[in-house]
């Protein structure tokens, strides 16, 4: 059976709190928790963001699938760091489990090293809930 993500209200709330504490408070612009079908489970931002998150989620899910397939082609089970660096904003992807993906959009002020620590921590906490 295909995995379906069913979370209750409380789980949604807890996940939002985790993402806020770990990532929004670090200074990231937008956090999206999506599934690999391209659906958005949670979206949070710093209040200054105005991006088309639905298109972003669709493309990110597709892109992630393509990159995973690339990993398999070269004999890797997965790539551990997926990161696109822009001039002002960058995107970081982390795979939470077989179906969930965490997308973080952040500016120059946030160090990738820290962001990776924080996303790892957020992931750990989310996995305890779902």
């Amino acid at each position: 059976m295909e995995y379906t993500i069913e979370l209750n209200k409380k789980q949604f709330e807890s996940i939002e709190n985790i993402l806020k504490e770990e990532l929004i408070d670090l200074g990231v612009q937008t956090v999206l928790l999506i599934d690999l079908a391209g659906n958005i489970l949670v979206n949070l931002d710093d209040g200054k963001s105005d991006i088309d998150i639905y298109s972003l989620a669709a493309l990110a899910a597709g892109n992630f699938g393509a990159v995973s397939a690339m990993a398999k082609v070269i004999g890797e089970s997965d790539f551990s760091l997926l990161f696109h660096k822009g001039e002002k904003e960058s995107i970081h992807f982390s795979k939470i489990n077989e179906d969930l993906l965490l997308l973080t959009i952040f500016g120059k002020d946030v160090s990738l090293g820290f962001l990776r620590l924080k996303t790892a921590e957020a992931m750990r906490k989310i996995l305890e809930i779902i």
Partner: peptide
Amino acid sequence: INAHPDSMK
């Protein structure tokens, strides 16, 4: 993880 975000700066 608890280091201040500005430390790397």
